[in-house]
Amino acid sequence: MGCFHSKPSQHAAGYEDPVALASDTTFSVSEIEALYELFKKISSSVIDDGLIHKEEFRLALFKNSKKENLFADRVFDLFDVKRNGVIDFGEFVRSLSVFHPNAPLEDKIDFAFQLYDLRRTGFIEREEVKQMLIALLSESDMKLSDDVIETILDKTFAEADTNNDSRIDKEEWQNFVLRNPSLMKNMTLPYLKDITTAFPSFVFNSEVEDVA
């Protein structure tokens, strides 16, 4: 397996060597090459420039490039580590690595904290949680009165905000998540364990001699 190498590499800007990426992440070289097949598909869906634009990210998630969603935009912004408005291949792989079933739980907890810390203050504030609840309601048919939302916030903060300062710090978040592990369900993508099966064509594009 893996003898389909020795062709000149033609990669878009932002491409990173799979061997280097494998040493930095939970993925094997083969898995990274398979992820490149997925990356090529997503990054060429609207603008074929080897970078994932927000519209392409939305299209991959919702089958609709115009659908606005606070959470998808937050995920995009966290993947866009260089904060230049696009996701390159290295950013894609490094960020997805956190979602691998074998990635450390601590990394998943930390990523979720950043996701919910909308204003990047180092705390998840009550106003931010309210904003996220309202965003969630607007994407579903669920209707909750402001009183009910405030009650949910009271209960959540009574449990999570142990020092009662109306915001959740990193340590409080870690303790809260450990008591409520279902909150981390979205932070693991079982697909990532089978990525080479999902994109077997990576073998034909492999530039690495031993991809086994």
Binding site: L38, F99, V129, L133, L136, I152, T156, A160, N180
Partner: peptide, 26 residues
């Protein structure tokens, strides 16, 4: 354990935008 509907983060985590498994679907 059953999800607690009074936990704001349980509710938020049901958002479609947080389900990245859709990236892997055809």
């Amino acid at each position: 354990a059953k999800p607690n509907p009074m936990n704001a983060f349980e509710l938020i985590s049901t958002s479609q935008g947080l389900d990245l498994s859709a990236l892997f679907e055809e």
